[in-house]
C-alpha cells in the first residue's frame, strides 16, 4: 500500500512577480464562477520611501491540520480528505455559511449553485498524479506542491536556512502552506 500523502505547498515569495497566471489557471480548471476566486494574488508593500520592501504572494485555502471550517461544519460536508487537504462535499452542504464565518483566512465563498466552495488543491488532478493547476502554470516556480510525508523531503530542501513563515499561526489552525519570505537576502 502506498504511503499516505500529506500535501501542502511551499510558496517562494522571492520569485513571485504577481502575474496572476495561477488565478486564471485555477478559474478555468475548476470552473470558478465570475466574480469569485479560489486563489488570488496579494502585493504587500511596507516601510518608508525610499526604503520599501515588497512581497508578492499567491494565496488560497491553507488546508489547515486543525481547520475551524471542519470543526464547525454541522453536516460533515467540510472534511479532512486524509491526504493533508480539506475538502467540501457539495452534496452534504446546506449553505449555512458557518465555515465562512469560521475561516480566519476568508478563503471560502458561496457558489451561486448553493454550496460553499474553495481551493481543493486540485484533488482531481492529484489523484491522477498531476500537480495543481496553479503550480503547473507558475512561470517562476514560486508555487510548489509538496508532500510532507516524502522521505527526502523537497520541502525541507527548499526552506532550509531561509526565513519561512506561516500565516496566522497564532490562530491555532496549523496551516499547510509555508511561505519563503521576500525579506530573505538574495542567494539565501
Amino acid at each position: 500500500m502506498a504511503k499516505q500523502k500529506n500535501y501542502g505547498m511551499v510558496i517562494d515569495t522571492r520569485v513571485c512577480v504577481a502575474c496572476s497566471a495561477c488565478v486564471y489557471a485555477c478559474k478555468s480548471e475548476n470552473g470558478v464562477p465570475e466574480g469569485y476566486c479560489r486563489d488570488w494574488v496579494v502585493q504587500e508593500t511596507e516601510g518608508a520611501y525610499p526604503k520599501l520592501r515588497m512581497e508578492n504572494r499567491s494565496e488560497r485555502c491553507q488546508h489547515c491540520e486543525n481547520a475551524p471550517c471542519v470543526t464547525y461544519c454541522p453536516t460533515g460536508a467540510s472534511h479532512y480528505a486524509g491526504d493533508g487537504t480539506v475538502q467540501v462535499n457539495r452534496y452534504r452542504c446546506t449553505g449555512c455559511k458557518a465555515c465562512l464565518a469560521a475561516c480566519p483566512y476568508d478563503a471560502r465563498y458561496v457558489h451561486p449553485e448553493g454550496y460553499v466552495d474553495k481551493c481543493s488543491l486540485c484533488k482531481h488532478r492529484l489523484e491522477q498524479g498531476l500537480e495543481t493547476a496553479c503550480v503547473s502554470v507558475c512561470p517562476t516556480t514560486s508555487l510548489n506542491l509538496v508532500d510532507f510525508n516524502e522521505p527526502e523531503a523537497k520541502a525541507d530542501e527548499m526552506m532550509n536556512g531561509k526565513e519561512v513563515y506561516r500565516q496566522k499561526e497564532h490562530a491555532g489552525t496549523n496551516p499547510s502552506l509555508y511561505w519563503i519570505s521576500a525579506s530573505n537576502k538574495p542567494g539565501a
Binding site: 466574480g35 469569485y36 476566486c37 488570488w40 494574488v41 496579494v42 502585493q43 511596507e46 464565518a101 476568508d106
Partner: peptide, 22 residues
C-alpha cells in the same frame, strides 16, 4: 519617517469583501 503598509489584492469574493457578508 512614517512607515506604511499597503496591501493590494486581486481577491474577488463578495461574501468576505470588503467584510464578512453572509
Amino acid at each position: 519617517t512614517e512607515t506604511t503598509t499597503e496591501i493590494i489584492s486581486t481577491k474577488l469574493n463578495p461574501n468576505v469583501l470588503p467584510h464578512l457578508h453572509i
